[in-house]
Measured scan of single mutants.
Amino acid sequence: KELVLVLYDYQEKSPREVTVKKGDILTLLNSTNKDWWKVEVDDSQGFIPAAYLKKL
Results as ranks from 00 to 15, higher is better:
Lys1Asp: 08
Lys1Met: 11
Lys1Phe: 12
Lys1Trp: 10
Lys1Ala: 10
Lys1Gly: 10
Glu2Trp: 11
Glu2Gly: 11
Glu2Ser: 11
Glu2Asp: 12
Glu2Val: 13
Glu2Lys: 09
Glu2Arg: 12
Glu2Ala: 10
Leu3Cys: 13
Leu3Gln: 10
Leu3Gly: 02
Leu3Phe: 14
Leu3Thr: 07
Leu3Pro: 03
Leu3Ala: 05
Val4Met: 02
Val4Asn: 00
Val4Lys: 00
Leu5Lys: 06
Leu5Val: 11
Leu5Thr: 04
Leu5Trp: 05
Leu5Ser: 03
Val6His: 00
Val6Tyr: 01
Val6Cys: 06
Val6Pro: 00
Val6Arg: 01
Leu7Lys: 05
Leu7Pro: 00
Leu7Gln: 04
Leu7Ser: 02
Leu7His: 01
Leu7Cys: 07
Leu7Ile: 08
Tyr8Val: 09
Tyr8Gln: 14
Tyr8Ser: 09
Tyr8Phe: 13
Tyr8Trp: 12
Tyr8Ile: 08
Tyr8Ala: 13
Tyr8Asp: 09
Tyr8His: 14
Asp9Lys: 02
Asp9Ser: 08
Asp9Gly: 05
Asp9Arg: 03
Asp9Gln: 03
Asp9Cys: 05
Tyr10Phe: 06
Tyr10Ala: 01
Tyr10Glu: 01
Tyr10Trp: 08
Tyr10Ser: 01
Tyr10His: 03
Tyr10Leu: 02
Tyr10Arg: 02
Gln11Ser: 13
Gln11Pro: 05
Gln11Thr: 14
Gln11Phe: 14
Gln11Asn: 13
Gln11Arg: 09
Glu12Gly: 15
Glu12Thr: 14
Glu12Cys: 15
Glu12Trp: 15
Glu12His: 14
Lys13Arg: 13
Lys13Cys: 11
Ser14Leu: 08
Ser14Thr: 12
Ser14Ala: 09
Ser14Phe: 09
Ser14Asp: 10
Ser14Asn: 12
Ser14Cys: 11
Ser14Lys: 07
Pro15Glu: 11
Pro15Lys: 10
Pro15Leu: 08
Arg16Trp: 15
Arg16Ala: 11
Arg16Pro: 07
Arg16Met: 13
Arg16Asp: 11
Arg16His: 12
Arg16Ile: 11
Arg16Cys: 15
Glu17Gln: 12
Glu17Arg: 09
Glu17Leu: 08
Glu17Asp: 05
Glu17Gly: 15
Val18His: 05
Val18Gln: 04
Val18Lys: 07
Val18Phe: 14
Val18Met: 13
Val18Trp: 11
Val18Ser: 04
Val18Cys: 09
Thr19Phe: 06
Thr19Gln: 06
Thr19Glu: 04
Thr19Pro: 03
Thr19Ile: 05
Thr19His: 07
Val20Ala: 10
Val20Trp: 05
Val20Gly: 03
Val20Phe: 05
Val20Cys: 07
Lys21Thr: 08
Lys21Phe: 08
Lys21Ala: 07
Lys21Ile: 06
Lys21Val: 07
Lys21Leu: 06
Lys22Asp: 02
Lys22Gly: 05
Lys22Val: 06
Lys22Pro: 03
Lys22Gln: 11
Lys22Ile: 04
Lys22Leu: 04
Gly23Val: 01
Gly23Ala: 02
Gly23Lys: 01
Gly23Phe: 04
Gly23Glu: 02
Asp24Gly: 04
Asp24Pro: 01
Asp24Lys: 07
Asp24Val: 06
Asp24Cys: 07
Asp24Gln: 15
Asp24Met: 15
Asp24Asn: 08
Asp24Tyr: 07
Ile25Arg: 04
Ile25Trp: 03
Ile25Val: 11
Ile25Asn: 01
Leu26Gly: 08
Leu26Val: 11
Leu26Asp: 00
Leu26Pro: 00
Leu26Trp: 04
Thr27Ala: 10
Thr27Ile: 15
Thr27Gly: 06
Thr27Met: 09
Thr27Asp: 04
Thr27Trp: 12
Thr27Leu: 13
Thr27Lys: 13
Leu28Trp: 02
Leu28Ile: 04
Leu28Pro: 00
Leu28Met: 03
Leu28Gly: 00
Leu28Gln: 00
Leu28Glu: 00
Leu29Trp: 03
Leu29His: 03
Leu29Ala: 03
Leu29Ile: 14
Leu29Glu: 02
Leu29Lys: 04
Leu29Gln: 03
Asn30Gln: 10
Asn30Ile: 07
Asn30Met: 07
Asn30Leu: 08
Asn30Asp: 15
Asn30Cys: 13
Ser31Ile: 05
Ser31Pro: 05
Ser31Trp: 09
Ser31Gly: 11
Ser31Arg: 06
Ser31Thr: 10
Ser31Ala: 12
Ser31Cys: 13
Ser31Glu: 12
Thr32Cys: 14
Thr32Gly: 08
Thr32Phe: 10
Thr32Pro: 04
Asn33Phe: 07
Asn33Tyr: 07
Asn33Cys: 12
Asn33Gln: 09
Asn33Trp: 06
Lys34Gln: 11
Lys34Ala: 12
Lys34Trp: 06
Lys34Asp: 11
Lys34Ser: 12
Lys34Leu: 09
Lys34Arg: 11
Lys34Thr: 10
Lys34Glu: 11
Asp35Ala: 10
Asp35His: 15
Asp35Tyr: 15
Trp36Asn: 02
Trp36Tyr: 09
Trp36Met: 06
Trp36Ala: 03
Trp36Glu: 04
Trp36His: 03
Trp36Thr: 03
Trp36Leu: 05
Trp36Arg: 03
Trp37Met: 02
Trp37Gln: 00
Trp37Thr: 00
Trp37Ser: 01
Trp37His: 02
Trp37Glu: 00
Trp37Tyr: 04
Trp37Ile: 02
Trp37Asn: 00
Lys38Asn: 06
Lys38Trp: 13
Lys38Ala: 10
Lys38Val: 14
Lys38Phe: 15
Lys38Arg: 10
Lys38Cys: 14
Lys38Tyr: 15
Lys38Asp: 03
Val39Phe: 02
Val39Cys: 05
Val39Trp: 02
Val39Glu: 00
Val39His: 01
Glu40Asn: 06
Glu40Cys: 14
Glu40His: 06
Glu40Ser: 10
Glu40Ile: 10
Glu40Lys: 11
Val41Cys: 11
Val41Thr: 15
Val41Asn: 12
Val41Phe: 12
Val41Lys: 15
Val41Trp: 08
Asp42Tyr: 11
Asp42Trp: 09
Asp42Val: 10
Asp43Gly: 15
Asp43Lys: 11
Asp43Ala: 11
Asp43Met: 11
Asp43Asn: 14
Asp43Thr: 11
Ser44Met: 14
Ser44Gly: 14
Ser44His: 15
Ser44Phe: 14
Ser44Cys: 12
Gln45Val: 14
Gln45His: 11
Gln45Tyr: 14
Gln45Cys: 13
Gly46Ile: 15
Gly46Cys: 15
Gly46Arg: 11
Gly46His: 15
Gly46Pro: 08
Gly46Ser: 08
Gly46Asp: 03
Gly46Tyr: 15
Gly46Trp: 13
Phe47Gly: 02
Phe47Tyr: 14
Phe47Cys: 13
Phe47Glu: 04
Phe47Asp: 04
Phe47Leu: 08
Phe47Thr: 03
Phe47Asn: 03
Ile48Phe: 02
Ile48His: 01
Ile48Leu: 13
Ile48Ala: 13
Ile48Thr: 03
Pro49Phe: 06
Pro49Met: 04
Pro49Asp: 05
Pro49Ile: 05
Pro49Arg: 04
Pro49Tyr: 05
Pro49Glu: 04
Pro49Thr: 03
Ala50Met: 04
Ala50Ser: 13
Ala50Glu: 04
Ala50Cys: 08
Ala50Gly: 05
Ala50Pro: 11
Ala50Tyr: 02
Ala50Asn: 03
Ala50Phe: 02
Ala51Pro: 08
Ala51Lys: 15
Ala51Ile: 13
Ala51Asp: 12
Ala51His: 13
Ala51Val: 12
Ala51Tyr: 13
Tyr52Leu: 12
Tyr52Asn: 12
Tyr52Pro: 01
Tyr52Met: 10
Tyr52Lys: 05
Tyr52Gly: 08
Tyr52Arg: 05
Leu53Ala: 09
Leu53Arg: 00
Leu53Tyr: 00
Leu53Gly: 04
Leu53Phe: 01
Leu53Gln: 00
Leu53Lys: 01
Leu53Pro: 02
Lys54Tyr: 09
Lys54Ser: 09
Lys54Phe: 08
Lys54Asp: 08
Lys54Leu: 11
Lys54Met: 12
Lys54Asn: 05
Lys55Gln: 08
Lys55Phe: 08
Lys55Gly: 05
Leu56Tyr: 07
Leu56Ser: 02
Leu56Glu: 03
Leu56Lys: 02
Leu56Trp: 06
